[in-house]
Design a protein around this nucleic acid. Structure first.
Length: 580
RNA sequence: GCUCCCUUAGCUCAACUGGAUAGAGCGGUCGACUUCUAAUCGACAGGUUGAGGGUUCGAGUCCUUCAGGGAGCGCCA
């Protein structure tokens, strides 16, 4: 049940009727009207701007709003209306509307707020896609959590979601990994060899070197690089992907597809993708202008194969081939997205680190060209995470190289808290992660605050059971709810009723952080009501000697716990039963 | 030089994508506890939304100019 959608439908049907009657001109477009909860409670339960938008069709907005109000006011759900300001129409609903929502929550349970917005469209979300050269670090963590939560959100909103990881195993960094691993291999065989400056320093390669020594013995010792490079690179890549898979698993993330960049090389797939662009006349040989204001000393104008990305919104055309004839990084990326498009996805979403900002336009241009502008690509840039401890910039051990690993992070904080905190900021804003604060049990820690609200509901359930009050789902679903009339109770109900609306707004914008903020607001309304029980015992959930009244109040608590569980589920967090 | 992102209360951030008097938390002041019905709650103070101009009935949100911060701009992936 979505009360806002229901009332909006009422408004829209009246507008259509008024067009039939000639009050609105034929063909007047009112698609963009809104019906939303006003910020001010004094402005009613719902407000619509319909009359204001109709003003451009020559009607007087206040007079029109009055007419609209009279017609809508006939509906039994509306108890009062008011024309306000330049032409807003404010509506007051019968309290039983909110009670109906509550009952719907109890009945729909885990399906409450599920949306048909996605219409079962196939969405591909590519995220993490870290180079397989070592364990995931903090920089990857935020993007990983964001992508997974977004996937949960879109699934809940009715999309069919594929979680995908693009393995960057095709570039020169993989040879560097192989050489570093080779040194660790020699060390494992007892040789006293120092790492080169260019080598990956992390300890995690030691075990890989040992495993290679165990598997092959000393067969690669004193051999030339071209003999061992392929073997060791493949072995090390697999080992790195195993580590990354474990890292993701520790965060509760499971990918549907791992797509290898290497699988594009030497198989004609890059050529096929570029052929597709060539057929559209978007490939040519040309010379790029030198970027201005950049280090200009080594610049030599060269002719190379270019993609006419400017025809799809980019600023300059982009090179596909280096001067030695090998592909740029962009070429396999084009092929990869060609593959995604041809797999039939309706929507593509890429989650990138903020350092890939310069890559957005060309990728969008590529997908636009490859799909003839049929498949939208949304690119979400994930800003930096800055680590702190008690307000001081935080550095961890360098055991694993020069970065703080995901493992380190989870060891200190745990996956649940990490996931929630990483989602308390919009993706394109920087996020400060303070080890002390995220474990703090206080109001300014949203993880705790939301979990505590849920724990309080659970505590009510325990007390009700002690008092022998039946609180089974079937009982609560049919309990009389009309006794819930206090402002504090209705405020919680209003917030609960917003959940389906919030889901659609968050899904439309691809912004899972909205869920985290909503949960904080819901918890706040719940804590207010709870605290109201201090001053007014009639607001307490368990009412001695009045089973039915207790049940209706507990039904409200149950609904809160349902929605909290749904919200936390999207964030990938388990609700707390108690806080001890 | 160009592109993209950011700039909102002392601090950290919201604002349902153009709606009404810009909201929360922290910090500050005052008030409510026999600690799972105070790990919480209430009240007060705190603002020219970086600056100017424009579009609109209506702008934090859109267009534009400028300032400050960040990321990026062929043979790095």
């Amino acid at each position: 049940m979505n009360l806002f959608v229901d009332i909006e439908a009422l408004v829209r049907s009246e507008l259509a009727a008024m067009r039939q009657e000639g009050i609105l001109p034929v063909g007047s477009n009112v698609d963009h009207i809104t019906v939303e909860p006003p910020r001010e409670a004094a402005h009613g339960d719902m407000a619509t701007n319909a009359a204001l938008l109709c003003a451009k069709f020559g009607v007087n907005p206040r007079e029109f709003a009055e007419q609209l109000g009279q017609r809508i006011g006939v509906d039994s759900r509306i108890v009062a209306y008011e024309v306000a300001g330049p032409g807003f129409l404010n509506l007051w609903l019968r309290p039983s509307c909110w009670h109906d929502v509550l009952q719907a929550i109890l009945i729909e349970d885990v399906n409450f707020g599920q949306s048909k917005l996605g219409a079962n469209q196939n969405v591909n979300i590519e995220f993490v896609s870290a180079n397989p050269t070592g364990p995931l670090h903090v920089g990857h963590t935020r993007g990983a959590i964001f992508g997974d939560a977004l996937a949960n959100l879109l699934e809940f909103a009715g999309y069919s979601v594929t979680r995908e990881y693009y393995i960057n195993d095709g570039g020169a960094q993989m040879d560097a990994l192989a050489r570093s691993t080779y040194l660790r291999y020699l060390q494992a065989l007892g040789q006293d060899i120092a790492l080169e400056d260019t080598a990956y320093p992390g300890d995690y390669l030691i075990a890989v070197g040992q495993a290679i020594a165990k598997k092959w013995g000393d067969v690669w010792v004193d051999k030339s690089e071209d003999q061992w490079l392929d073997h060791i690179r493949n072995f090390a890549t697999d080992a790195m992907m195993d580590i990354i898979r474990e890292d993701l698993s520790a965060l509760g993330i499971e990918m549907d597809v791992f797509f290898s960049e290497k699988s594009l090389y030497g198989t004609g797939r890059i050529e096929a993708a570029l052929q597709s662009l060539d057929c559209k006349g978007l490939i040519y040989r040309g010379t790029l202008e030198q970027p201005k204001g950049k280090g200009s000393k080594d610049w030599v104008a060269r002719e190379q194969m270019l993609f006419k990305s400017t025809e799809h919104g980019d600023d300059v055309d982009r090179p596909l081939q280096k001067s030695d004839g090998t592909w740029t990084y962009f070429a396999p990326d084009v092929a990869y997205h060609f593959d995604k498009v041809s797999r039939g996805f309706d929507v593509l979403i890429n989650v990138f680190g903020a350092d890939h900002g310069g890559y957005v336009k060309r990728m969008k241009a590529a997908v636009s060209a490859l799909s003839d502008n049929q498949v939208p690509l949304d690119i979400k840039l994930i800003q930096l995470v800055r680590l702190f401890k008690n307000g001081e910039p935080f550095k961890m051990s360098k055991r694993s190289g020069s970065f703080v690993t995901l493992r380190d992070l989870l060891q200190h904080v745990g996956p649940e808290v990490t996931r929630f905190v990483m989602l308390t900021r919009k993706n394109d804003a920087m996020l400060d992660f303070d080890f002390a604060k995220v474990l703090d049990q206080s109001r300014d820690n949203p993880v705790f605050y939301v979990q505590y609200a849920n724990a309080r509901v659970m505590s009510v359930f325990r007390r009700a059971r002690e008092a022998k009050i039946p609180i089974d789902d079937e009982v609560l679903q049919s309990v009389e709810l009309s006794s819930l009339t206090h402002d504090l109770e209705l405020a919680v109900l209003r917030k609960l009723a917003e959940w389906p609306r919030l889901i659609e707004a968050a899904a439309r914008a691809n912004e899972p952080h909205k869920v985290a903020f909503y949960l904080n607001e819901l918890a706040s309304e719940f804590h207010r009501l709870w605290n109201g029980g201090n001053d007014y015992p009639t607001l307490r959930f368990v009412q001695p000697d009045n089973v039915e009244l207790s049940q209706s109040k507990i039904a409200l608590g149950r609904a809160v716990s349902i929605v909290i569980a749904l919200g936390l589920g999207i964030l990938g967090v388990t609700p707390a039963q108690e806080m001890r």
